[in-house]
Amino acid sequence: MPKSFFIDTSRCTACRGCQLACKEWNELPPNKTKQTGSHQNPPDLNPNNYKLVRFSEHLENDTVQWYFFPDQCRHCLEPPCKDTIEGYVPGAATQDPETGAVLYTEKTKEVPFEEVRSSCPYDIPRKAADGRLVKCTMCNERVSRGLLPACVKACPTGTMNFGDRDKMLELAKKRLAEVKKTHPKAMLADADSVNVIYLVLDDPKKYHKTVVAQRSDGLSRKQFLAQIFAPIRRPVEGIGQSKS
């Protein structure tokens, strides 16, 4: 049984404990950032930030909505990035069968970054200065030793949850039913295909463009995956099959 995150954005206060805890646990170097008119900083995921709280604000019917989205790798059940990477260098990406964590190795240095990045329906992978491809690791070394991922451990509000996939799905569905009473547009983002299940209260586009898997051209995850895998040199094994 893989592990899953359940990220309940209805409880997020954007305290950024998760963003900092991730950075500190992984001892990632700081970025030189600037204030550009938003609290969201750094402005995007980058090789030094595997986790980023995104901020988006809206004024509708005279009511302010300020949405927070702690973005990170979704650890897809069938990770397209892994298939892309392995299409170039077998063994450069792996998926821990126990936890479901999608992990990149040193060998990703040899993989064309842009192809991997564009194969990710959530625009997660980034390239480090030394050429490695990097992203959230699910704190797999912690998880495999029975500890919570650093971001989940730090979360004060119950936004970040982690555990066996079935339990997380159950919790997600329960929370969805509760929040739907006041937020009829609430939904779980791609719950069936990812191990990082987000609950959002509103149209996911109001949070961030890749909350659910699709690109700006409006392709669904399925269409998207069909398209991105077409040119891959090596036959793709994982598509449509269950690995669990």
Binding site: K3, D96, T99, L103, E141, S144, G146, L147
Partner: peptide
């Protein structure tokens, strides 16, 4: 912590 069961293949030193 919680006994998630050992995952030998990826268990790195903490």
């Amino acid at each position: 912590g919680f006994d998630l069961g050992p995952v030998k293949a990826y268990a790195a030193d903490l």
